[in-house]
Design a protein around this nucleic acid. Structure first.
Length: 586
RNA sequence: GCGCCCGUAGCUCAGUCGGAUAGAGCAUCAGAUUCCUAAUCUGGGGGCCACAGGUUCGAAUCCUGUCGGGCGCACCA
């Protein structure tokens, strides 16, 4: 490859550009109409590698526009591609696929690109510097994180990193629901613990309050801070103080839990502060002016018996039925306070003010509320002259297992597993990687016994072990005075080449994953790359001449070490997106 | 009853904007191996992509319907 410009294109980008250039030539010749749309044209490795290194469907997609049949158009494209020295062969196959076989040199040069870019290899500019706000976790500040929060936390965090890697600015945001009724419950529970700390006997925790031990230190803290002046006073006196104090303590707890998973948000937004600033009123005013909020009576729930205390009341309702929802949704409660939804739509407007796109990561148990919030946001955003892309990604439930048996969890019985316990038992990397080796919209099982197995059945172990093997090889090379070098790279053969080809997919995978907003694709890529590496490594079991360091040939050893170093780099880059450590040894 | 998600090998799961003969690991079967390049290796068998229609050069992928599983369904959050 003759490409030695500083802004080195990755291999796939370079060849996609070559094909694009050919299409431009055909436009100039009149074989294609001017400004032929290219969005359907793909350039990707064929499923079957015997077909070649890259394949494009350009001829099939564009044949109609060219007023010809796919194979004939393919012929014109192939003729031009065959003139390129980096393309050994361009052939037409099947209905009109164009298969390209690239020179070994073109592939091997990608190793140089990896070395040159280092930890930047695979980064993309498709984000164009636009700001994406990713809101994830947003667990209620009423207790420690438990397992149910885990998947959304990991997926949201990896997605944020992925988008950064793909050229977006990212804001990682946590919405603190510190304004609702459950915070009163928290405050009352904390008050009980406060009295306990001051020597009162509290007995069993009354029904409806939080029984967890985690409130004991909060009560002790409050007793130290406040003395006994709220011990016997009216609830109205102490409630605001206890709310604020206990929410703060719960957020400390939650942040510590998240840190165990390597998760750190940029921004914590308070619902109470939002309301104090009058944001929901602003939103309501605009919605009423556009007849999207009206005072009406809620319908009784359909399809099941209404609750005992059901009674029709008039409330301000958002016209979400206009957007496909089952019924209109209240933005205020009968006590005059904002509903969660009423505050949430104002909150999304607030986020939209500083971002170009919004993403929410929610648990599947909130699926019923997606329509109303999407409707409200698009109505409000357009009203303010700023339509904003808004995605709600639902993360499905995780079924916890131990040795193939489902673990029953219920808050009522107190039998639930906290995030901290889980991380302590299996480790951060295992939790993160396992949560990411499944597409988020499918339910998954998490078996405590299986995920810690140190064997090839376990994807986390498999990928980390590949990196550890590379590290140990590099150490061994260094001990023998062998520095990695690209000089002898031409000596690398078929087996090494297929490893390079796998690693060279990374930039493509990053872009595809970022566009689809699916971080799990990175995890699967790493698993495949690790597999490719291990099978290459295994060649050395029987054939010492296939090992990275071969006594007889220093130049080959140095070239193979160069290869190993670049594979290690790609694994590190991928793992960094997932927030999983690339270990040096195991 | 309604809404959202899922259904791919015996099991757990991938499957690129619709692309060529649908993949991986486990399990199974047949070989190899006791080796610090250690926490196995090589190869084989195994599929009505839940089912039925539709869209088109082409469908696991898109549309409609049916069945099965999960989640949710008054002012909670």
């Amino acid at each position: 490859m003759s490409d030695t410009t500083p802004e080195m294109l990755t291999l796939h980008a370079a060849f996609a550009a070559k094909i694009d250039a050919v299409l431009a030539e055909l436009e100039a010749d009149g074989a294609l109409p001017p400004e032929t749309p290219r969005h359907n044209v793909t350039v990707e490795p064929p499923r079957d590698s015997s077909h070649g290194d890259l394949a494009t469907n350009a001829a099939m997609v564009l044949a109609k526009l060219a007023k010809t049949n796919p194979r004939e158009l393919a012929g014109k494209i192939v003729d031009r591609l065959n003139a390129d020295p980096d393309i050994i062969e361009a052939t037409i196959a099947g209905p009109g696929f164009i298969n390209l076989r690239l020179s070994d040199e073109a592939w091997l040069n990608e190793l140089g690109a990896i070395a040159q870019s280092g930890s930047d290899y695979g980064k993309s500019a498709i984000g164009g510097g636009s700001t994406v706000n990713v809101e994830y976790v947003s667990a209620n500040p009423t207790g420690p994180m438990h397992m149910g929060h885990c998947r959304g936390a990991v997926v949201g965090d990896a997605l944020a990193s992925l988008l950064e890697f793909a050229g977006h600015k990212v804001v990682r945001e946590y919405y603190v629901n510190d304004a609702g009724g459950q915070v009163d419950v928290l405050a009352r529970s904390a008050h009980l613990r406060y009295r306990e700390a001051l020597g009162d006997t509290i007995g069993d925790i009354p029904e409806g309050l939080y029984p967890g031990d985690y409130l004991v230190p909060v009560g002790e803290h409050l007793a130290r801070e406040l003395g006994d002046r709220f011990k016997d006073s009216d609830e109205a006196d102490w409630l605001p103080v206890f709310r604020a104090e206990s929410v703060e303590k719960m957020m400390d707890l939650i942040k510590a839990d998240l840190a165990l998973l390597g998760i750190h948000h940029d921004l914590f937004s308070s619902e109470a502060a939002l309301q104090a600033a009058g944001k929901p009123e602003e939103a309501e005013k605009w919605l009423r002016a556009h007849d999207l909020v009206y005072d009406g009576v809620l319908e009784a729930p359909k399809g099941k018996a209404p609750p005992d205390d059901w009674e029709p009341v008039e409330l301000p309702l958002f016209r979400s039925t206009k957007f496909g929802d089952d019924q209109d949704r209240p933005i205020k409660k009968s006590d005059g306070k904002w509903t969660y939804f009423g505050a949430d739509l104002a909150y999304h407007m607030q986020k939209a003010e500083t971002a170009d796109a919004l993403i929410d990561i929610w648990g599947a148990d909130h699926s019923g509320t997606v329509k109303r919030i999407k409707a409200a946001v698009s109505a409000l955003a357009e009203g303010e002259g700023k339509a904003i892309p808004f995605d709600v990604k639902l993360v499905q439930m995780v079924q916890l297992m131990r040795d193939g048996e489902p673990l029953k969890m219920s808050k009522r019985s107190g039998n639930f597993i906290t995030l901290a316990e889980m991380v302590e038992e299996v480790g951060k990397d295992v939790v993160r990687f396992t949560m990411l080796t499944r597409k988020p919209e499918a339910q998954m099982e998490f078996d405590f016994a299986k995920v810690v197995e140190a064997s090839k059945d376990n994807p986390v172990f498999y990928v980390q072990y590949a990196h550890a093997r590379i590290s140990s090889t590099m150490r061994k090379g260094a001990a023998e005075g062998l520095e990695p070098s690209a000089d002898g790279i031409a000596q690398l053969g078929e087996a090494e080449l297929s490893l390079v080809k796998q690693a060279a997919q990374f930039p493509r995978i990053v872009e595809a994953a970022a566009k689809a907003r699916e971080p799990h694709r990175i995890a699967f890529f790493l698993y495949d790359l690790g597999g490719e590496f291990h099978s290459y490594w295994n060649l050395g079991n029987d054939k010492p001449e296939k090992r990275f360091i071969v006594a007889q040939n220093q130049e080959l050893s140095r070239a193979r070490l160069f290869l190993a170093a670049q594979i290690g780099q790609v694994i590190r880059n991928g793992l960094s997106i997932l927030g999983v450590e690339a270990v040096e040894e195991m």
